[in-house]
């Protein structure tokens, strides 16, 4: 059996004063090296789920295993957080130090990496997200996308096996969103780092390998993006949307145009539409 990075079994979680559970009976499983997405509107429980995945919250029912370690066991907690880092939504509220380089060092200092090894690991982590030239800058002089890449570097330096992104692009402009997503895709592709991408942007979810859609604390739908987005009505009923290209393809198909299934991205949709239209005019 392939290695499972995250193994969530029938997990529920309720905040202390809350009557309703924020997460209810969720099960999911993410294999090593994968790029999975969790999609859902605000308040669907996706951020709570994220915090259950590295022991920031502990499940009230069920089990969460990270790299085979149970998050409920106190002894595992630092190892789990070292293996599965987390990038949060607000770029400003996760940078601790007044200099980029010092911030990347923060995690290393916490886990007791010897001083002599630090500069090399910091340099490598910064260059992996193309931020090495900014090592001496103050964080507040950087753009949102740059700050998020610093946050990623801070985690990379700790050499994790997985990173959880909790709506890491929600507060960025399109440019920042693109640069962060591209950096993460590269890490997944080149370093085999497992990614769990939590978002409400359909275009991003469409580029992941597998999608869980959450609604009211439960997993309401799951499948490959092609499977999930091929039924726009169902996705829209969950107060979410479908990528524009998939929506158009769906409408054309319903109106009778014989397009193939599973179209998601603008480029492939355009090609398929052009192919079908040309076929028609030649015939």
């Amino acid at each position: 059996m392939e290695n499972r990075i995250f193994e969530v079994e029938n997990v529920s979680f309720a905040y202390e004063e809350a009557e309703e559970k924020a997460v209810q009976g969720v099960s999911l499983s993410v294999p090593e090296g994968a790029f999975y997405a969790v999609l859902g509107q605000n308040g669907s429980g996706k951020s709570t789920l994220a915090k259950l995945l590295n022991g920031l919250y502990l499940p009230t029912e069920g089990k969460v295993h990270v790299c085979g370690l149970d998050t409920a066991d106190d002894q595992n907690i630092w190892e789990i957080r070292k293996q599965a880092g987390m990038v949060f939504q607000n770029p400003d509220n996760q940078i601790v130090a007044t200099l980029v380089e010092d911030d990347v060092a923060f995690g290393l200092e916490n886990i007791g990496v010897p001083t002599a090894q630090m500069p090399e690991r910091i340099e490598k982590a910064l260059s992996d997200v193309d931020m090495l030239p900014f090592r001496d800058r103050a964080p507040h002089t950087l753009s949102g996308g740059q700050k998020q890449r610093i946050a990623i570097a801070g985690i990379l330096a700790m050499e994790p096996r997985a990173i959880i992104f909790d709506e890491a692009t929600a507060m960025l402009d399109p440019q920042g969103r693109k640069e962060v997503f591209a950096a993460v895709e590269k890490l997944n592709r080149e370093k085999g780092i497992t990614v769990l991408w939590i978002t409400h942007f359909m275009e991003e979810a469409a580029r992941c390998q597998y999608v869980y859609i959450m609604e009211d604390g439960r997993i309401a739908m799951e499948g490959t993006p092609a499977e999930v987005f091929s039924v726009p009505e169902k996705v829209q009923a969950l107060r979410l949307d479908v990528p524009a290209a998939a929506r158009l393809a769906h409408r054309l198909r319903q109106a009778g145009m014989p397009l193939k299934e599973g179209l998601l991205h603008p480029e492939e949709t355009a090609e398929e539409v052009a192919r079908v239209c040309r076929l028609n005019s030649k015939a």
Partner: peptide, 13 residues
Amino acid sequence: VICRMNNDLRRLG
């Protein structure tokens, strides 16, 4: 996105 697709489609003939 629609504008980009339209341009792609025109480019594809």
